[in-house]
């Protein structure tokens, strides 16, 4: 159960960064930390003690495998996470070119 708690704490650390930081890049990093903690949680749920990796050896079948369903879900989520991060960084670099700063409060004050 300890691992689940630590996973929650990692999520909360990322959320704290998103709420309190003023630098856009740090907000992006915190968002990916939250993403990673979700991936880790799903992978933890699917783990079976003494289970083998979910690859069948037809010559020598194993009885117990790790749950393949959360792994397939996380595989999809990782790739989508990369896509969102790339798009976020594109938006951030556009904002920097326009305003010359990463500080969200300063960008808010600069609006005409």
């Amino acid at each position: 159960m300890t691992v689940y708690w630590l996973c929650f704490i990692l999520f909360l650390v990322g959320l704290y960064g998103v709420i309190t930081r003023r630098n856009l890049i740090k907000i992006a990093i915190s968002l990916s930390v939250m993403e990673f903690s979700c991936f880790l949680f799903l992978a933890l749920i699917g783990y079976t003690e003494g289970g083998a990796a979910p690859i069948v050896d037809t010559a020598d079948p194993v009885k117990i495998y790790v749950d393949p369903l959360p792994q397939a879900m996380v595989l999809t989520a990782i790739v989508i996470g990369l896509a969102t991060t790339a798009m976020l960084m594109a938006v951030i670099i556009r904002i920097y070119r326009k305003y010359g700063t990463f500080d969200i409060r300063e960008i808010n004050n600069l609006r005409g």
Binding site: F39, A43, L44, G51, A52, A53, V66, Q71, I78
Partner: peptide, 16 residues
């Protein structure tokens, strides 16, 4: 991921 017996995830995650 490697410790949790998820080699596919580890490969994708290291690239991403």
């Amino acid at each position: 991921f490697l410790l949790l017996k998820a080699p596919d995830l580890a490969i994708v995650q290291i690239v991403v």
